[in-house]
């Protein structure tokens, strides 16, 4: 067996050339493409990781927001409950105050009504007493309506102040009102008694007034002297009413 050294050399060169060709046109582009694909896959994985991280962050933020909303809701509910309780207490207080006011008003109105009723009863009693007194006076003798009241009127005039007494019948007749027209005797006696009390002569004019029931009433310029049954009844009635009130 012999070796063809030319063939050996040429085959060596051929293989080396083939190494260069395949390295240049086969292995390099294919390896580059594999590397690019791996880089793309890594980039996609990185993007996916980033997206996952963002999603996790968004989920955490949403969770925090939900917790915040829940806390706000709890706080708002608590505040609303407190406000409602405060409003309820305020309304209760207002109602109680209004109720007290209404009670006080009712008590006042009841007291006033009772007072008015009492006043009306007193007035009715006074009218009834007046009516009874008038009926009883009608049963007495006619002289009794005047005779018993002349001295009383004179005594009352005597108790008046000096200036008041000086003005009575000074230059003019003394105005008198009587339960009925006076007889001459009664008129004389009355004139005498007044002159005795006043210490000077006076004229009198008597005006009948049946509403006086009995007695006399002297109308001076600055005073009125009443000595009548009607005046007595009015005084009694006023006294009764004052005590009842």
């Amino acid at each position: 067996m012999t070796i063809d050294w030319w063939t050996l050399g040429l085959q060596t060169i051929n293989v080396l050339v083939l190494v260069w060709i395949l390295a240049r046109f086969l292995f390099r582009p294919v390896t580059q493409m594999i590397t690019e694909r791996q880089a793309a896959a890594h980039a996609a994985l990185d993007d996916a990781r980033a997206a996952k991280a963002e999603a996790e962050a968004a989920r955490a933020a949403a969770k925090d927001a939900a917790a915040g909303v829940a806390n706000d809701r709890t706080a708002l509910l608590a505040k609303a409950r407190a406000d409602a309780e405060q409003e309820k207490q305020r309304l209760h207080d207002e109602a109680m105050t209004e109720l007290d006011t209404l009670r006080a008003d009712a008590r006042t109105e009841m007291a006033q009504a009772a007072k008015d009723r009492q006043q009306a009863l007193s007035e009715q009693a006074g009218a009834l007493a007046l009516d009874i007194a008038a009926r009883l006076i009608d049963r007495l003798p006619d002289e009794a309506r005047i005779a018993g009241f002349i001295d009383g009127l004179a005594d009352a005039v005597a108790k008046l102040p000096e200036a008041t007494r000086a003005a009575i019948g000074d230059g003019a007749p003394v105005d008198l009102r009587a339960a009925r027209a006076l007889t001459d005797a009664e008129k004389t006696r009355l004139t005498d008694r007044l002159q005795a009390v006043l210490g000077r002569p006076v004229d009198i004019t008597v005006t009948p007034d049946p509403s006086l029931l009995a007695g006399l009433e002297l109308d001076a310029a600055t005073a009125i002297v009443r000595n009548t049954l009607r005046a007595d009844l009015d005084r009694i009635e006023a006294e009764v009413t004052r005590h009842d009130g």
Partner: peptide, 14 residues
């Protein structure tokens, strides 16, 4: 070519 010793020798030398 590998059935000839020159080619195999070239490969082995490389």
């Amino acid at each position: 070519p590998t059935a000839h010793i020159e080619t195999d020798a070239a490969l082995a030398l490389i």
